[in-house]
Every structure is written in C-alpha cells, then in structure tokens.
Amino acid sequence: MSRAEAVRRASPLWTLGLFRSELLTTFRRWRTLALLGVLAAVPVLVGIAVRIETGDGSSAGGGGGGGPAFISQITNNGLFLVFTALAATLPFFLPMAVGVVAGDALAGEANAGTLRYLLVAPAGRTRLLFTKYAAVLVFCLVATLVVAVSALATGALLFPLGDLTTISGTRIGFSEGLVRALLIALVVAASLVGVAALGLFVSTLTSSGIAAMATTVGLLITVQIVGQIPQLHAVHPYLFSHYWLSFADLMREPVHWDDLTKNLGLQALYAAVFGSAAWARFTSKDITA
C-alpha cells in the first residue's frame, strides 16, 4: 500500500507540524479559553472568600479542619492557596474541562465533517490519534498550571508569603515550597491522564461531539459517586479518581510516595487500556463524516 509507505517515510517534523496545528486548534477555541477562564477564577474566588472570612482574625474552615485541604493555612501563607485551589478543582472542575476537550477531540471533528480531511493528509490514523491525545495531555498540563499560577498570584496579592510548614510539622523555605507546588501541579496534571484517555476512547465511539463530552463527564460523575459509597469499597482502588488527593503527600516531610506511585501507575494503566481501546476502535472504524 503506497499510503502506508508514505506514513513510514513521513519526517518527524511532519508529526510536530500536525501536533502544532492541533494545539493551535485546541487553544484557539473559545470553548477552551472559557474553560481555562473558569479554572483561573476558582482560586481567585477561594482566595477572596478566605480573605473576607478571616478579615476579623479567625481562621478559615472554622479551625476544625473543614473545607478543602490546606484551607486553614492560607491566611498564613499564600502559597497554600495553590494547594487548596488544586484540591478544590481536582475532583470536578479540572477533569470536567479535560473531559470536554478529550471528548471533543475526534467526535468533534467527525461532527464538523473535518475528520475525513484530516485523514486524507498522509498522517495515518494512529499518528492522528496520538497527536490528538498529546494535545489533550498538553491541555491537562496547561489547565493545571492555569489554576496553580492564578492561585499563586491571588495568594501573593491577598496573603503573606514566606517559609511554610509542611503537614508533617517541619519547615521548608519558600523556594522549596515553590518547587513542591510545581511538583504538585505536575502530579495533578498527571492525575488527569486517565480521564483524558477515557474521554478520547469515548470520542472514538461516536460522531457527535456533544454526546462524547456528555458521556465523559457523566462517567466522571458516576465514578465520583461510586467513590463516595462505602459499601463499594472493593472497587474503589480501581477508580481513576481514587488516589487523586494523594498529591498532598508531596507536602509531607519526607514525602510519602506510596499513594503517589499508585496514582501514577493507575493513570498509566487507564491510559494504556483506554488508549489502546481508542486505537482499536479508531483504526478500524468507518469514517463517514
């Protein structure tokens, strides 16, 4: 087959070009920008709320440890707003945004009738799928960083910065705190790899972008609900969201890696299973639109 040969001969730059155009398409969409805007607004809202609540000197979260993780420390160190914002957005906002982008990745093209034109180009379906997945992963990272940076800016404006106390009670300098914040952002982004693969797989199943997005977000909600039911604890370790909040273990001293590695392993497993399922589906399906 001449086209198969063409695929093999295609230069790596071609893939990069495809990837770049894919990124541009993704991030130029108003929908994507609106999602990022909403994500950026969350830390600002949390920061302002904490600022108002603690204006009279009381501690946030009622001092009893309520609310999202780390919220009681925000008033003492703005850097904690990064952790609180990530803890607040990770259960729903972030995966929802990823689900929208991933679900739209292929189904959206099919819906708009542009998928066949993409396939006419000598890129091949496997390569197109990888490019789409890579673009979704970049979106995961960008979305997480948007939350983190917005939180850091809000925290720096509203609260003091400085040395911080880890949750183990030891002190680390502000620069090490920043490094940990970056690490946490990377781990949070990596936590979304599983949802991204799931969304991409759903996206190969249908030619309706809306249906794919709704299904992905619906699955996310279902998984989150199942994760809340104690009677179903036997299946909990296999849910992609089970170890999400383990990113907080990076704030222990020394870092407690057990759950973090489990989380990354689980995300890799989801990526492998649903990535290969998406490949199996996409490379063998009839593209009619």
């Binding site: 009893g64 993780a69 009681s72 420390q73 803890a87 106390t165 880890t166 183990s168 009670g169 907080a248």
Partner: peptide, 20 residues
C-alpha cells in the same frame, strides 16, 4: 491531605494537627 504529628524533642512535646 493532612497529618497529625506528635513530636518529642528534648524537653518539648509538640502535637501538630495540620488539618486545623
């Protein structure tokens, strides 16, 4: 996402609840 530490160092005993 939290930790309770009980630290004994010399004469001091500290309990620290990071959640609250």
């Amino acid at each position: 996402a939290a930790e309770y530490s009980l630290i004994h160092n010399g004469e001091d005993v500290w309990g620290y609840d990071s959640a609250s």
